[in-house]
Nucleic acid binder design. Structure first.
Lengths: 191, 191, 191, 191
DNA sequence: AATGAATGAGCATTCATTCAT
DNA sequence: AATGAATGAATGCTCATTCAT
């Protein structure tokens, strides 16, 4: 009973409120006051848990990318081909993004504001870099600089989610596999 | 007659100043006063030419995308295959982006802020929609919703430029062709 | 008629409001908003005329010390003894202070806050430094470091005005001469 | 019994921390949190010992002036002339100030902020008021209102310490006597 | 069309104080 | 007595926008 926890997790409430509001109003349409109100917390409380706005946002970004990385780890299977792993993981990421659109919304807004030039999708895929490098040595994927491959593999994900958000079109789970295949075509070796 | 050019110059100077400053300081690091100063114009002058900041930014975005569209038209050749057109145009766009980084910088910042949800890369490629549709009917490219194809084709461009900007790696003109080929692989029909 | 001026002198109104309020509420009891209201000006207007609070305060301090320096120049007589000049000028300063108590109030608050360690009474008496040095060479005043002499000559003025303010006692114009004489006794050579 | 000392220590630690920090950062550059940290005490603890910030500061001021008064008592010698007592005590005060600059730093900052208009140097010299009055009756010092004499005697001390602090000049113990003599010249009867 | 001083709502942040533990 | 997370009013300052000239 005592360990219910959630009720008093002000730090979590703040981060969650920030994520929700940024999705709704954009990274720069959200003030600390708005976040505090959404989190049912006083304005000053945010500054107990975070040094300032920038650090709060970074913390949120790190939380989110970390969760994605965990997801990658969860879905990776050592005993299947690189291609199968790629398609599975790519699909799972896109599905996750579609389930809670706040995540990719936030990521693309954060990564594409000049806010923090170091925070881009490279970092996002860091844990599969190793797999990419191994695959490249085995001539399974194209012989390109790693960031180029990441751009080819991850660039479309953001674009797709963005389009899905502005209700340009729906993405069913069947489609997801198709897009994963298409991205695979982009990076796979032609030889 | 000769002096006519000067008349429109203030509006152009303002847009040019905005583009330069946004590239340097980010979409939200730039104030109207800064733009006015960079353009050698009084703060109030901007409001003679644009209703407000939002409209000025939209106007800038439209100007830029329009120029890209013109570029597409300039490079399109009726007598070559869809694939060759795709690769040529795709490459020219990326080269142009690399030449004046202010353009893709602005596009990615503008398109990925929640500023204007309708302004995304679909619009950017509108003039080649027709070509895409024709190609799809001929089974040359994958049978997917148009926005999905655009995401596959244009998504990586933004990602590449972004990475180039944060000096993750250099893109030589030789590479450009390779990335164009890779994007082609993503959308081309496998049948 | 047109040159009435006062009505539109917002910068002057701001400085005057600041002086009045600082006297009333202390250097740190006054907010920019209070000053703006007292000056019948919008909060932002202060920042058109001054870079920030600190510069506004420095500007006020400079204005005031400059006026004192002008006063010194006005009362200095080349054809009378150093002593007579000292007593006349010292008395005039004190009288001026008593007339508009805001001036010494502000000076002592500004000089004694750790605000700006460089702004102390030395600067206040800068224009008569020369006179002091000449008098010292002629053995008319004590052979001490200049700041020490200034402390002896000006220290009591601040103390007197401060006491007068907290209604400890009244200073008539007759008294003024006596205090001037006493300060003279402090610095004059005993030889 | 032995551990009794510890009990009062927190209050003392708080006052000591306040004094140190005020000297370093100024009366208004110090927050209650800073004081609590410096004193190794929780923020709330200060409010167990003091009603609020103002009372804490007043308490500090009283502590300090009381110590000065004790010092006066310690140095007063019934069997020597008023002049000799004045010079000795004046010198001892200045020396004490120079030894622990925190004391005069705090005094001048506190007394010259509008914090507490009643707290000025009169109070500081209260215990020697009696001596002054006796000396005045004997025509040893000038016939002026008591606060005026205090201004003449104590005003320069504050000014000197202030100047010493802003490193305008050094005060050696030999100089101290000279300044004491000068102050004596200011108040001594000329008859 | 052009100016730029003026506006005032809004922002991120601080801090004296409270109170449940 | 002691703690320190929480509060929320207040602060200095910015900036999109207006308007008299």
């Amino acid at each position: 009973m005592k360990a219910r926890g959630k009720i008093k997790d002000k730090k979590g409430a703040i981060l969650n409120a920030a994520l929700t509001l940024i999705t709704k109003y954009g990274l720069h349409g959200v003030s600390m006051k708005m976040i505090a109100e959404e989190a049912n917390v006083a304005a000053g409380t945010i500054y107990i848990h975070f040094k300032n706005k920038e650090e709060m946002l970074s913390s949120l970004y790190l939380n989110i990318t970390n969760e994605i990385n965990l997801m990658v780890g969860r879905h990776y299977k050592a005993n299947v081909s690189f291609k199968d792993n790629f398609i599975l993981i790519w699909s799972e990421i896109l599905k996750e993004y579609i389930k809670d659109q706040r995540v990719p919304d936030f990521i693309s807004q954060f990564a594409f504001s000049a806010e923090d030039a170091s925070a881009d999708s490279t970092q996002l895929l860091a844990p599969i870099y190793e797999l990419f490098e191994k695959a490249q040595k085995e001539n399974v994927i194209k012989n390109m600089p790693m960031p180029g491959l990441v751009a080819l593999a991850h660039g479309p994900i953001t674009a797709l989610v963005r389009m899905a958000r502005s209700s340009k079109f729906e993405i069913s789970s069947i489609d997801v596999e198709n897009y994963a295949e298409a991205c695979w075509d982009a990076i796979r070796s032609n030889q």
